[in-house]
Write a protein that binds this DNA or RNA. Sequence first.
DNA 1: CGTGCGCTTGACCTGAGTCAATCCTGGTGG
DNA 2: CCACCAGGATTGACTCAGGTCAAGCGCACG
Lengths: 293, 293
Amino acid sequence: MVGDKAKVASDCPQPTGCTVCSVVADRADGCLWPDATAISEASARRFSVPSDRVVTGEGVQPAAVWIVQSGLLRVQRYSFDGRRQILSLVLPGEVVGYDLQGRDGLVVESATPCTLCQIDRRLFEKRMEDSSDVRRAMYLQQLNQLDRLRWLTWAIGVLTPEERLCAFLALATRFMPFEALPEGGGVLTIQISRADIADLLGTTVESISRITHRLQDEGCLEIHNPERFRIVDLQRLIEMGQIEPTFAGLPFQGNPPSKPLVSAGRGRGKAKPGEPEMTAINASGRTPKIVLQ
Amino acid sequence: MVGDKAKVASDCPQPTGCTVCSVVADRADGCLWPDATAISEASARRFSVPSDRVVTGEGVQPAAVWIVQSGLLRVQRYSFDGRRQILSLVLPGEVVGYDLQGRDGLVVESATPCTLCQIDRRLFEKRMEDSSDVRRAMYLQQLNQLDRLRWLTWAIGVLTPEERLCAFLALATRFMPFEALPEGGGVLTIQISRADIADLLGTTVESISRITHRLQDEGCLEIHNPERFRIVDLQRLIEMGQIEPTFAGLPFQGNPPSKPLVSAGRGRGKAKPGEPEMTAINASGRTPKIVLQ
DNA sequence: CGTGCGCTTGACCTGAGTCAATCCTGGTGG
DNA sequence: CCACCAGGATTGACTCAGGTCAAGCGCACG
């Protein structure tokens, strides 16, 4: 199983480009070290990590930040009674460890076998301070992670477990191994365990199992084996999962969509009638421009 | 009602300090414009906004960023069938509008009557680029907002509606008007509607109502009127809500705790036995330091 | 060939959502 | 000054989605 998982992880799109630690996503906004030479080899170390190991988090002295080279990390937190919520998955090319300075009960673990690149925190911070390019890259990466966290919050809050799982599967085609098939759809390799999916989506392994089998009955997908699905009707998953075509948190990693993902129109709250709008309290005495309806 | 709410909003701790737009929270890390003179008066405009107005979001051309001076904004997103999730409340002293460049279906609205300070986006970005002090202040603010979003995701994922509401009430003493009483506890003024609380916590107004009355029966609080509670047993709310003493996302705004908030010890997942740890793939041939257990 | 873990399946049951009626309060207009 | 109205909050009755508990099943590994 572990061996198999490891194989799968290595199937993951292998980013290349950064000469220092071979870590760079091949997406336009993901290149973390545009001028890679600035970090010497000595300051970056690569590690191979099996599944379910603590990488960094609360108790750990955050002397280092980590870049995911391959595999997936999970950021998680427990409740007193042991219930776990996974707050995000960290994708290849992404940095972790600089913004969770031990607060909360946040812990980062490997969700799959991973290769990680370790960088000294001081050095990282200096790079951030010195280079506006690095800052910009980090900023864009943070935006993506923030988008994903917002998505997750929204999904857990308003979607049913079934809708969440549909969304997850549809999105997973963007960041897990997915071989598109000529006859449509494709084969998706689920790299993480049922328990991780359940704790990410705020549901249970039993529900995950039931829902996937229900989706199979409905013809949305075929369960080849527990970690390999044939996605038959991706469009339907996208619709059920209410995925917006503009969702930016998951730039496609090696699996750009053949056709743009289109979603059904969006529901909105009742539009407020015009009525009294903003009123300026203008110290400078100018007539304020009312900016938006 | 609106008039009353407006009164309540004005009860909110009025930040002072920034000479430009009078917007600065009086917390150490919240001062956005340490050298305020750099922004001329002409470039900042103050607005008074009633409840439930769109401030910025998806469709809106983001030509401006906004600083909340008083009142609360809500960042929210709808599902196709009209269910709403509030992703965060924006507190006085915080900036909104620079990091949601129209993506997703995010909309920012006023949850209470507010006074806002509008700043030109270009100017704001230039300030960010030029001043590492401003960058740092923004960074810390983002960390707080991120902490709160993580908390919310976790709470919706693993806590029951009752636990979430307890947590919300306990946290609300930090950012809504709260008059501590000598005999313990204090009077909390809830500035936002039941519907907003429900959509923030991923539950319904009916549940909110039932739970608050149940808490009253249990002696945790007294419902003075729908928007004013006497918190009797704050400690119990904190425990039920599983609030960590280290939770940093909500620096106290004018309501520092008389005694430090202490929570019951935290539950953790089963600790993994030692076993094979990280193995270095060390290009440079050094012996890697195994960083963490 | 046994053992264990992860996944699946079934039975059960309850927490909390839904629907609908009622209450309350503040604002309005006569 | 009082009756009326609208919107928010509350309460009750009902229902069921999905969580919990408890077996089974099957593959991987030793």
